[in-house]
Nucleic acid binder design. Structure first.
Lengths: 121, 121
DNA sequence: CTGTATCCTGTAGGATACTG
DNA sequence: CAGTATCCTACAGGATACAG
């Protein structure tokens, strides 16, 4: 259900700095995770709910990756039942402007829908 | 050769604006294309060379997609042999800051390499 | 030079079931 | 609740060959 478009997101890395970062937000849902965490810390199930049809497996692995890269932090709260809170690290916070920039253009793109005005050279 | 990491890049779109834009720069190499075009118009073979091991097929389809979305323009110059010049449209130009933001964080990410300082809450 | 047509493969990620 | 373990498959994209 909900087949998602795939794409390779790892150009050689040496070419330009893009690759490096795309490795971070290249994964499916990754930008969304950052997005939602930018509004404040959030628990696993909350994120899961936020992101509707994401599978636990994928959410879990994206979170693990991001944690390992120092983009988010994971804190186990010893409540019962146990809950885990994820939050952006300061490094992760730096991604937010980038994400917002992307989102901003996303809007325009959706509006213009492919008008394709020639470049203003 | 040069196996590239794949990832789905199309979260439901309704969730947050990210999806919309990730559809644009989600494809492999796509950010790089924008990146190189941001330095000025460029021909097919130049881009191909810029991006080293990209296959003609992929470059071609990415370019076609981007053109269709109004992000780049394609102009056939009637030289002999014929050459084609690609350039960012004004809309495409708006992607550049986003890309740069991504690139910027890319550097940091590479440097810090996963220090993972806890969030400053 | 600028692509398109095929064929083939790896792998991201969905579904589902199960654990602490 | 917060995951992990399996199994499975669609599809992005590499290689190669060919075309205008």
């Amino acid at each position: 259900m909900l087949r998602m478009r795939k794409s390779t997101v790892r150009p050689p890395e040496g070419l330009c700095p893009i690759g490096t970062c795309m490795q971070v937000l290249g994964g499916a849902w990754t930008p969304n995770i950052i997005w939602y965490l930018s509004e404040g810390p959030r628990r696993f199930s909350e994120l899961k709910a936020d992101m509707a049809p994401i599978s636990a497996k994928v959410l879990s692995s994206r979170l693990k990756e991001l944690e390992q890269k120092g983009v988010i932090s994971r804190q186990v709260l010893d409540t019962s039942p146990p809950s885990v809170e994820y939050a952006l690290t300061s490094l992760g916070g730096e991604l937010v402007p980038a994400i917002r920039a992307i989102a901003k253009v996303g809007y325009r793109l959706k509006q213009e829908g492919g008008t394709g005005r020639p470049a203003p050279r």
